[in-house]
Design a binder for these strands. Structure first.
Lengths: 201, 201
DNA sequence: CTCTCGTATCTAGCGCTGCTAGCGAGGAGA
DNA sequence: TCTCCTCGCTAGCAGCGCTAGATACGAGAG
């Protein structure tokens, strides 16, 4: 094997890897767009394959199954959510106002992008969560919450646990409202009640 | 048509209606048991039909579809939950203790009977919720929450909204913990944090 | 007692789903 | 130039929710 041969093989390989990565991006994007447009029920492996103009089995050479594709979409969603939360946090001034702004942004995200939100926090289980192996984007999103919860922690409170509790409350409001279990009506006032109780009136 | 004929026909009809109601009970029970034992994915119309020893289409003469069967199971679940919450509430003494007891019971119910809980509060949409048409058992369960939340409402607070907010927080804790998004570990302490913040320290 | 009719139930099948085995083309390397 | 290996394809499996059409059975009339 000559050195030129080795080099050529490597460049060909890298091109192929690049194309492959590009196609993977295509799959995840198509899945996200289809889910956001028509819901996850509409995201079938056949439609997804048609969308990316490849045959069905190609999907399985990239992902273990539909669940893994949803997981990839969910990770993208975490990055989006983290970005929105960061923007809301840095734009707000004051402890209470920051908490309220982040809370509003969180539930607004869940309402505006329900398919994405469901992939992240309702469906899917095969994504590591409360461990170091969890995707960085997920930790980033959680940290945005932590940063606004931290100032309201009382002496001796575990900030992580308090953040988790606050997160759970937001998650509950988001999911129950979106599924029609809570009327859309009082949403703002419920958020206000939550923030008031967590900031200690 | 003689009067005896009319009477006979009525008794036959009532017997048939009784048998039909009995079979409906059988379906709902089988669905609940199968779901609790193996999860809702295992509850297929075929398995359900086999379980009750009738053919598939019989299910559709009782319910509009699988969703309607899940709804029926969910209503049963509401009654169970309401009973547990009532027991916890009446057994507890003191404002804070009642709230804590009901909160513990609620999340414990979700953990012990996940399939039932999901049918009630995660899956399903074709069950009326925040309206007068909602099943009485559902209102009953909600009222058990309301009764322990009422004492902690501040002047001018809408008790209903406050209850909804507290409920959402419990729901968030229950679902996130059960799906592995929150570690089982800090659950007790998260509950405590929630109760403390809602009772105003 | 017999015949007819309506109802209740079953068999069979439709159009999907996620997923996979196995074939064939086409490029890499000797 | 020949061989081999990788890649994507066609075709198909088992199972899903749901339904159309056939059938058996029991009630009521003559």
């Amino acid at each position: 094997m000559t050195s030129t041969a080795r080099i050529r093989r490597m460049t060909i390989q890298t091109r192929r890897e690049r194309e492959r990565a590009e196609r993977e991006r295509l799959i995840v994007n198509a899945a996200r767009e289809l889910a956001e447009a028509e819901g996850w029920d509409a995201v079938t492996t056949r439609r997804l394959a048609a969308e990316i103009e490849y045959s069905q089995p190609v999907l399985y050479s990239h992902f273990k199954g539909k669940g893994a594709i949803m997981a990839a979409v969910a990770v993208q969603g975490c990055a989006d959510l983290a970005a929105e939360l960061r923007a809301a946090r840095t734009a707000a001034r004051g402890t209470r106002e920051s908490l309220a702004a982040v809370a509003r942004t969180y539930t607004s995200f869940a309402r505006r992008r329900p398919a994405l939100y469901d992939a992240m926090f309702t469906h899917l289980v095969d994504l590591p969560f409360a461990t170091p192996e969890a995707p960085p984007a997920l930790w980033d999103a959680f940290d945005q919450l932590r940063l606004v919860v931290e100032p309201i922690a009382a002496e001796g409170d575990d900030t992580g646990l308090l953040t988790e509790t606050f997160w759970a409350a937001l998650h509950g409001l988001a999911t129950l409202t979106r599924s029609g279990r809570l009327p859309e009506d009082g949403h703002e006032r419920r958020l206000d009640l939550l923030v008031r109780h967590f900031t200690g009136e």
